[in-house]
Simulated scan of single mutants.
Amino acid sequence: MMNQRTPDSTVRFERWFELEIIQPMADFKNPRQEWRRLVSELFGTFLLVIVAAGGGMMSQAFPGTISRTAAVVAPGLMVLGIILFMGRVSGAHLNPAVTLAFSMRGDFPWQRVPGYILVQLIGATLAAWFLQAVIGVSASAGSNYTAADYSSFQAFLMEALLTLGLVSVILGTASGAQNLGVIGAIGVGSYIALAGLWGSPISGASMNPARTFGPDLVAGDFTDYWVYLAGPVAGAALAVLLAFVLRGRGGGRAGSGAAQGDLDTEVSRPTQA
């Protein structure tokens, strides 16, 4: 006969569960809840790469069904949705270049950067692995490559330029805490779609080291990956410099709230919006 839990042990278990599980999770602003941000970034980056890499992989599996226009617009629409549903949790960076830009701007604590970038890379890798396993097409079809007859340096310049625009839009809307709402979501999502429409033929318009890293790792092919690492980082740094010229120093409450979400937001310049 199986042992049955006594009433006293049941009460103790319920009390433990309440104190150790329920209450900590309910304390949404507890600074120890960094795991919420990390889960948010992992899941958000996973969804982004599912769409961004999935367009190319689906197109190879089902020729003629997905146009280039659809493939480059879809990630913008996905990012729009992600910002709306999880921006208040983690800031919805989804991109190591964005995380670095927020930190260089003073809106995001540097000690959180390694965790964010790590889970972004993991989310992108899981997405590429999932797509390859389900579609049956190499993840390399969902990566980014320099176009034929163009040099890696030209692709680097294109990625830097496109990322300069992307991060400028993000920092600009974040300066009014609008990245937490509809305006930021529409601005960022629209820019990603527009940049893909005109910039993708040369470099693929990645603008995101994690987005390219996932498919490259799963496919085991890092051809020209330096372009998709150095280009976005350089573009993000230039965007931070431009933001300083246009709006002065960062670190204010509005920008910090947009960069960090609503979980125990750290503000280095509380008196500045």
Rank of each mutant, 00 (worst) to 15 (best):
M2A: 09
N3I: 01
N3P: 09
T6L: 01
V11C: 01
V11N: 11
R12T: 15
W16R: 14
F17L: 15
I21S: 09
Q23K: 15
P24Y: 02
K29G: 12
Q33R: 15
V39S: 13
V39Y: 01
S40M: 08
V51S: 15
Q60I: 05
G64T: 06
I66R: 04
S67Y: 04
T69L: 12
A71Q: 11
V79Y: 06
V79E: 07
I82K: 11
I83D: 13
M86K: 04
G87C: 09
V89R: 05
S90F: 09
N95H: 10
A97V: 03
A97Q: 03
F102T: 00
M104T: 00
R105W: 05
G106N: 07
P109D: 02
Q111E: 09
V113P: 07
Y116E: 06
Y116C: 00
L118P: 05
V119F: 10
Q120M: 10
I122A: 14
A124S: 15
A124G: 14
T125M: 12
W129Y: 13
L131I: 00
S138L: 08
A139S: 12
S140T: 06
A141N: 05
A141C: 01
T146Y: 00
A147V: 04
A148M: 08
D149C: 00
S152F: 03
A155H: 02
L161E: 01
L164I: 07
S168D: 05
V169T: 13
L171S: 05
G172E: 06
G172L: 00
T173A: 13
V182G: 00
I183T: 14
V188M: 07
V188Q: 13
Y191N: 10
I192M: 12
L197P: 04
G199R: 04
P201D: 07
P201A: 09
P201C: 03
G204C: 05
A205T: 14
S206A: 15
P209W: 11
R211K: 10
G214T: 08
G214L: 10
L217P: 05
V218F: 01
G220L: 04
T223L: 11
D224L: 00
Y225N: 14
Y225P: 01
G235N: 00
G235T: 02
G235K: 07
A237L: 13
L238Y: 06
L242G: 02
L242I: 12
F244S: 04
A254N: 11
Q260P: 05
L263T: 08
Q272N: 08
Q272L: 14
